[in-house]
Design a protein around this nucleic acid. Structure first.
Lengths: 159, 159
DNA sequence: TTAAATTGCGCAATGC
DNA sequence: GGCATTGCGCAATTTA
């Protein structure tokens, strides 16, 4: 799970409240409040003059103590959480979709099987009838003409 | 791939207190050294005397300078990467599966449509033939011979 | 230009 | 004891 010391309500915390402050508060009773070691990376622009539209370089490295910095961080943390939740939800939805589609496919296959069977039966009937006609109408073959029902057809219709 | 030299300040924290720890992330492609304060919960054993099985408490606070610590971290980072890659791969596979199933679905539906049509045609032929029989056979009670229309069937080929 | 969303990454807790 | 998962925060990037 996550950090035990961090009380993380499912609902988003009110804007303007820092998580770090929450944690600090959580152990406020404990002595020796620690201070954040702050390392500020060198300003990127130190190297060469950027060829950008006049007037503005990149960004100042964002002071960590800045109120605005904390605010941005917190907003981003929120956004990240949201994004991740969505991502997970989407994954689950996709999985579910797979299941649904699988089911649907089985349904369709069953239907195909049924239709095929029906078709096969009808075709057999046709053939049988055709044979009967042939036997009755064109009795060219010498022999009994009235007795040749041809009981079972050859079962046409593959698939 | 190997970690760039990460200068982590020797922030030795007193046991039993939360502290903000620095974290650095750097990539070869995107060199952007970041020093990120991270919250570390207090050592759990700090509170009261724990009644645990003999001889073993939980863990020593894991010296961040320790060689073994760095090794563990690095291994874990590797494992995390691997796990995440798998996770993403799985998600993509699932998505692909959805696509395949959708395709299959369409195929099946088309087939059903075709079979239905064939069936419909055959049934119509049957009906038509039945009518013809009724028309030809009913009025003349004599024999069942005479004109037998029975045009050649459309010979619907399955598949 | 700014704010939100996404993405890669490391840390730590926890599961196995 | 070690790898695998998971939640989380930071920061760089991308998108709107």
């Amino acid at each position: 799970m996550s950090r035990p010391s961090q009380a993380k309500p499912t609902t988003a915390e009110p804007p303007g409240v820092s998580v770090i402050q929450n944690q600090a508060a959580a152990q406020a009773a404990a002595p020796a409040p620690q201070q954040v070691p702050q390392l500020v990376p060198a300003h990127p622009d130190a190297a060469g003059g950027k060829a950008l539209p006049p007037g503005k370089m990149k960004k100042p490295p964002a002071d960590k103590d800045s109120e605005e910095y904390r605010q941005r961080r917190e907003r981003n943390n929120l956004a990240v959480k949201k994004s991740r939740m969505r991502s997970k939800q989407k994954a689950m939805d996709t999985q579910q979709r797979v299941n649904e589609l699988k089911e649907e496919n089985e349904r369709l296959e069953a239907k195909i099987k049924l239709l095929s069977k029906e078709l096969s039966v009808l075709k057999d009937l046709f053939l049988e009838h055709a044979h009967n006609l042939a036997d009755n109408v064109a009795p060219a073959a010498g022999g009994a003409e009235g007795a040749s029902p041809a009981p079972t057809g050859p079962a046409p219709g593959g698939q």
